[in-house]
C-alpha cells in the first residue's frame, strides 16, 4: 500500500484530523497574535504594571516543558477543581497561553529596543503622531518582528502534535490510529511529514523572504 493509497483510502479520517489541527492552529495563532500583540504593546506602555509581570510569566513558561504544562492542566488541575474539560479546549488554552506570552515578549522587546533617535528626527521635522507611527515606527518594528513571529507560529503548529497525548483527535492522533489498524508506519508518517512540509515550508519560506527583503542591514557605515 503506497502513501497515495493510504491518503485516498483514509482521507475522511485525515480530513477530520486536519480540521482539528487547523482549528487548534486558528485559536493558537489568532489569540497569540491579537492578545499577544496587545499584551506586548501594553507591556511597553506600562512596563511595571504589565511588562515585567508578562515577562515573568513568559520566563516561567519557558522553564516548564510544554508537555508537563499540558498534562498538568489536563489531569491535576481538572481533578483539583472537579471539572472535566474537553481535551481540545485544554490543548487550545495551553498552547494559546504559551503563544500569547511568547508573542508579547517579541513585540515588547522590539518596542523597547526601538531607537529613540528616529522619533526625535520625526519630531524636529514636524511629522504628525500618525505619520510617526505609520511611516516610521510601524514599518521598522514590523521588519524586526515579522520573521521571528512567523517562525514562532510554525513552531506552534509543530507543537499541536503534543495535544494527541491528551486524546485530542488532531492529525497526528488520526495517523496513529490508522497505523494501529494497518501497520504501515513508513507510509503513514511519510504522508504526515509531507503534510507538515506542505504547510510549514511556505510559511518558513515567507519568513526567510521577509527577513532577506526587509531586514537588510540598516546600519550606517
Amino acid at each position: 500500500m503506497s502513501v497515495w493509497d493510504i491518503l485516498t483510502n483514509y482521507y475522511p479520517a485525515f480530513l477530520t484530523g486536519l480540521s482539528v489541527t487547523l482549528k487548534l492552529c486558528a485559536i493558537i495563532w489568532g489569540s497569540g497574535l491579537i492578545l499577544g500583540g496587545a499584551l506586548g504593546l501594553a507591556g511597553n506602555k506600562f512596563p511595571r504594571g504589565v511588562g515585567f509581570p508578562s515577562h515573568g510569566v513568559s520566563f516561567f513558561l519557558g522553564g516548564v516543558p510544554l508537555l508537563v504544562f499540558l498534562f498538568w492542566l489536563h489531569y491535576p488541575v481538572q481533578a483539583m477543581f472537579n471539572v472535566v474539560i474537553d481535551p481540545f479546549y485544554t490543548a487550545a488554552f495551553t498552547l494559546a497561553i504559551v503563544n500569547i506570552f511568547a508573542v508579547a515578549d517579541i513585540i515588547r522587546g522590539a518596542l523597547n529596543d526601538f531607537p529613540q533617535q528616529y522619533l526625535i528626527a520625526a519630531k524636529v521635522t514636524g511629522l504628525t503622531r500618525k505619520q510617526t507611527i505609520f511611516k516610521i515606527q510601524l514599518p521598522l518594528i514590523l521588519r524586526e518582528v515579522m520573521p521571528p513571529l512567523l517562525l514562532l507560529q510554525v513552531a506552534m503548529l509543530h507543537i499541536t502534535l503534543f495535544s494527541s497525548l491528551i486524546s485530542v483527535e488532531e492529525i497526528f492522533r488520526v495517523a496513529q490510529r490508522i497505523n494501529a489498524q494497518i501497520y504501515r508506519p513508513v507510509e503513514i508518517y511519510t504522508a504526515l511529514g509531507v503534510f507538515f512540509l506542505a504547510v510549514c515550508l511556505p510559511i518558513n519560506g515567507l519568513a526567510l523572504w521577509l527577513k532577506s527583503r526587509f531586514t537588510r542591514n540598516l546600519s550606517e557605515q
Partner: peptide, 29 residues
C-alpha cells in the same frame, strides 16, 4: 516645528527610506 528644526551630529536619517523619501516625508506636511 516647523519654524524651528534641528540637525543632530548623528543625523538620525530613517534607515528604511531612501534619501529622497527621507526628505519628502516631512515635506508633505
Amino acid at each position: 516645528w516647523p519654524k524651528v528644526t534641528a540637525v543632530f551630529q548623528s543625523l538620525f536619517l530613517w534607515p528604511h527610506l531612501t534619501l529622497r523619501e527621507n526628505i519628502m516625508l516631512p515635506a508633505r506636511n
